[in-house]
Every structure is written in structure tokens, then in C-alpha cells.
Design a protein around this nucleic acid. Structure first.
Length: 487
RNA sequence: GGCCCCAUCGUCUAGCCCGGUAAGGACAUCGCUCUUUCAAGGCGAAAGCAGGGGUUCAAAUCCCCUUGGGGCCA
């Protein structure tokens, strides 16, 4: 059975690159009716933190990548790594290294001066028995290094095809540090073996680790898994994606009001395409058609624009209930929002904003005026629509018509406005735009008459009156006009 | 610096394995349309095979080099 794993180290936020790796592992496993495991690589206690582990778990759960079985923590398996490091030592496939950091530093310096690539010069492999005993007696700290055998190491990568390394390029890397903690290579190989991992799917940046690990598998006499190295995700400047590129961690996308399904969809298509021209594909469908061999080789740039578009597609196709649930938490962050009092209004306006919002975070920003009178008039809007004195007269007329309106609905409201426009020989827009400013403070938004109907007669009258009073003193082309006062 | 990986519109990509396409789609951009505005929708435009050599009747596709980008050693 196919078994794969996602193995993040909890040393920072769960970023989109990691998430995509998890998604591909997950899709591959489910497509093959296999299992997907989560392994936390927390062997570095100083850098690993509980909070980061929680973020990984929450992030994966949020986006809908479910792991099988228990989470494996490397910090609980330190004994095992030691055991296998010593096994190699006993078998002569690894050796003690007494070199101090200073010595290693010096080797590096020398290599730099000679313009040669640094490789551990096997100082400790060449030491005599007496020398070693002496160093032991001195109590010198010692690491265990893996002895790289001669020859070449090649493997077939599911995405890149055949990749070959000359073993002479690889240094005798450390597998166990002086403090008995394992290095990445050792822990990874030991765990992958005992977890029965059949396919190692991870980022491109691990390609050069792969020959080292294969050599380790061979030394242990273990079966070598298949490898698939995913291309990296870069920022718009083609540099490795980092915080300066804006939102990169999954937590941020959640907070920015993205739907997990949309992010999942977007990330899955960043580097993989089903081949036809489909873009909006559900997780279930992807599981059916995912093919690791069709994953691209080339690094790709994370383009937030397309994600935003995709999110808006998912919003448009969501039920009103779903939109309500998702947007509620963003409304609740606004001090003007009172759930009990406002939830009915929120329900009513969802259809009006469904095609207008691209993220849920935008919703309360765009629709504040339905819940509070304390919106601000957009300056440009006033400059644009209130420079004609007639505006005030016509709006007064509209106001008095509304006052005597019995059935306050959008049809009747529209009739009033259109008639007034005709009577005054102006375009309907001449009334609609300033009215929108008065009622919403904004220049753009849903249909005005729908807004009015939901606002209700009393509120509409109040807002028009208030607005006219405030703006009446406004003189065309003068740069100062009344600041919005608070109510 | 050494080694490794990669290269189709600005971006994500289809086509490449198995040579013959008007190089297709999507995002973004720009027009037009609808319209009270903004969106959404509809229609349309602009935009690409990194460069150079081969191989071949024929190359985005196969081979080599250069250039560029990325990764690891750190």
C-alpha cells in the first residue's frame, strides 16, 4: 500500500509551499488508496515550539488535508535514531568525529581561499587508534559521521526523471551530533523506513539531500522509497517566498477571509494541471484525477490575484448560509456590529454582495452602512455629485415623495426617482449618485433601490435629511466642507 | 565557487514523452456590451515558445552550447 507523509519542522508558520506539499502528498495517497501521515520534525528543541505545532495542525485541518493515524513526533523517537547511528558506527559505516567547530571553521576558510568547495576532509577517519583513544580520554566532544562510499548514486525521480550524483561530491555528513541528537538525514531515513513510507514527496530543495539519504538506506540494507521532488513556489520577484511578499502563511489567508476550498484548489493547481482546461475543481474530483507524474518541473510564482479570483468564484457558488457563517466572524470584529440585532439584515444583504466581495474580509468594509450611521462620505463623491445647486432641490422633492410613500419597496422608489428626473429634465443618474452618497457614503455598491428597501423608510428619510442639512452649506469647488460628525 | 534542478503570454498553465497546432485555456490588463454606480454576466483585443547551433522534408517538441533563474553545500 502507498504510504506518504508530510514532515514539517515546527520552526515557523505553515506557509503555502508547505501546504502545497501536504496537498500533493494527500492527493497522491488518496488517489492510490493509500495513507497519508503527519510527522512533526521537532528534533531541535530550541527552535521548535508548541505553538508552531498547533499552527500546523490547525492549518492542515482548516484546509481539509486529513492525515491517517497518529501524529509522529520525532522528539519522542530520539533513542531510535541513536541506536541506528551506533549501528552504523559498529559496522564501520560511520565514524567518530572529534573535530571542533573552530577546526571545521578553519577547513571552510581554507576551502574558500583555495576556491574549492568545502567538504569535510575526513580528518577523523584518518586518525590512528592511539590518537582516538587520547581524544576520548580528553573528553573531547564527538559526533558521528557517515562514511560516504565510492561510486555514483542515482535515483529515478517521479517528477524529474533520472538524477545522478557522484559520491565524491558528497561529504561525510554528520548523522549524530555530539549532544546525541540526530541530524535531519538520519531521522528522516529512519522514520521513513519504520513508517513504511513508499513515496517521499517533498520540495525541490531536498534534491541534494536525496543521494545522502539513499546511501543511508543502502547502508542499513533497507528498501529505498520512490522520490518525487516538487518545484518551489517563489514570490513575484522570483525569490523564495517570504514574509516580505505579503501573506504567505496559511493562518494569514484564513484571517484575510479566504475559503479553505479556494486555497486548496488554487494551491493544487500551482504546479499541476489535470490537462483539460478546468480550473475550479473540488477536492474529491482532484483525488480521482491527480497524477504526480503530471506535476510541473518548473518553479512557479505565487500570484495572489488568481487566488483572489478563485476565492470570488467559490463565494459566488456558495449558499447564502455558508456565506453567512463565513462572514460572521469578520462582522463580529467590527465595533458597530451587534449579532442579535443585525443578523437579519446581514442575511438580507448577502445576495446583494455575493458577486461583489472577493474575500469575506471585504464584506463588512463594503457594507458597513447597513449597520451603522457612522459612515464617512467619500470626498471624491461629494466633489463629483454635489457641485450643482439643483441637486439639493431635487433631493428635497424626492424626500417629500418618499415621506408620503405608503408601500416602501424598491419598485416604488425607483418610480419616484425616475419621475423626478424626468420632471426636472435630468438624467436619473443625476439623482441616484448623490442619493447613494447620502445613504451609504460610498460611490459604489449594490443597486440603490435595493439598498433603500433594506434600510427602511424611516432610516432612508433620516439619512437624506441629515445629509442635505450637512452638505447644504457646501459651496461648489470650495475645498472645505463639513466633516462628518458622529451620531 | 562546486554540484544539482529548471526554462511556452506579465502570472498559472495545455501542447513536449510519441516532431506536422492558426501555439489552446485561465488570472491580470485593455476595449465593447448590459447598466443608476461598482461588481457579476456576455463578446472581443493585446500578449508567449530565452538565444544560438545542430538532427530532420518538417522542431515549442529531439540533441548540444550559451544565457537566465532557482536550490543545496551555508
Amino acid at each position: 500500500m502507498v504510504k506518504v507523509r508530510f514532515a514539517p519542522s515546527p520552526t515557523g508558520a505553515l506557509h503555502v509551499g508547505g501546504v502545497r506539499t501536504a496537498i500533493y502528498n494527500y492527493l497522491f495517497a488518496k488517489n492510490q488508496n493509500g495513507e497519508f501521515y503527519l510527522r512533526i520534525e521537532d528534533t531541535d528543541p530550541e527552535r521548535s515550539r508548541e505553538d508552531w505545532i498547533k499552527i500546523i495542525i490547525d492549518g492542515l485541518s482548516w484546509i481539509g488535508v486529513k492525515w491517517d493515524g497518529e501524529i509522529i513526533y520525532q522528539s519522542k523517537r530520539l533513542e531510535i535514531y541513536r541506536e541506528y547511528a551506533f549501528k552504523l558506527l559498529k559496522e564501520g559505516k560511520a565514524y567518530y568525529c572529534f573535530c571542533t567547530e573552530e577546526e571545521l571553521e578553519r577547513y571552510k576558510e581554507e576551502a574558500k581561499i583555495l576556491k574549492k568547495p568545502f567538504k569535510y576532509p575526513r580528518t577523523c577517519l584518518k586518525r590512528s587508534k592511539e590518537e582516538i583513544e587520547k581524544l576520548e580520554k580528553e573528553g573531547r566532544k564527538k559526533a558521528i559521521r557517515f562514511k560516504i562510499p565510492e561510486g555514483k548514486t542515482k535515483f529515478f525521480d517521479l517528477i524529474h526523471g533520472e538524477i545522478e550524483f557522484d559520491n565524491s561530491e558528497i561529504e561525510d555528513f554528520v548523522i549524530l551530533r555530539p549532544d546525541l541528537s540526530p541530524t535531519y538525514q538520519l531521522a528522516c531515513v529512519v522514520d521513513d523506513h519504520f513508517m513504511g513510507i513508499t513515496h517521499v514527496i517533498r520540495g525541490d530543495d531536498h534534491i541534494s539531500n536525496t543521494p545522502k539519504q539513499i546511501l543511508l538506506y543502502k547502508s542499513f540494507g533497507w528498501e529505498i522509497p520512490q522520490f518525487a521532488h516538487l518545484p518551489m513556489i517563489l514570490g513575484p520577484d522570483k525569490k523564495r517566498l517570504s514574509k516580505r511578499h505579503g501573506a504567505t502563511s496559511i493562518t494569514e489567508f484564513k484571517e484575510e477571509g479566504f475559503l479553505p476550498e479556494a486555497l486548496f484548489n488554487f494551491l493544487a493547481l500551482l504546479g499541476w494541471s489535470p490537462g483539460d482546461n478546468r480550473e475550479i475543481i473540488s477536492k474529491e474530483e482532484m483525488i480521482k484525477i491527480f497524477d504526480i507524474k503530471k506535476v510541473n518541473k518548473r518553479a512557479c510564482i505565487f500570484d495572489i490575484n488568481k487566488l483572489i479570483w478563485m476565492n470570488s468564484e467559490y463565494i459566488k457558488n456558495s449558499t447564502d448560509e455558508k456565506i453567512l457563517n463565513e462572514s460572521l466572524k469578520f462582522f463580529e470584529k467590527k465595533e458597530w456590529f451587534e449579532k442579535e440585532r443585525h443578523i437579519e439584515i446581514l442575511k438580507k444583504i448577502i445576495p446583494l454582495f455575493k458577486t461583489r466581495i472577493r474575500t469575506f474580509k471585504e464584506f463588512p468594509e463594503f457594507a458597513d452602512y447597513f449597520f451603522t450611521r457612522e459612515y464617512k462620505y467619500e470626498k471624491e463623491g461629494i466633489d463629483k455629485y454635489f457641485i450643482y445647486p439643483e441637486v439639493f432641490e431635487i433631493l428635497e422633492e424626492v424626500l417629500s415623495e418618499i415621506n408620503i410613500l405608503n408601500e416602501f419597496n424598491k419598485e416604488n422608489l425607483e418610480k419616484i426617482v425616475r419621475e423626478k428626473a424626468k420632471e426636472n429634465n435630468v438624467k436619473t443618474a443625476f439623482i441616484i449618485h448623490p442619493l447613494r452618497i447620502l445613504l451609504t457614503g460610498k460611490q459604489v455598491g449594490p443597486g440603490l433601490f435595493e439598498i433603500m428597501e433594506i434600510l427602511g423608510k424611516e432610516e432612508v428619510i433620516f439619512r437624506i435629511k441629515r445629509g442635505l442639512e450637512e452638505l447644504r452649506g457646501f459651496i461648489p469647488y470650495k475645498t472645505s466642507y463639513p466633516e462628518r460628525t458622529k451620531f
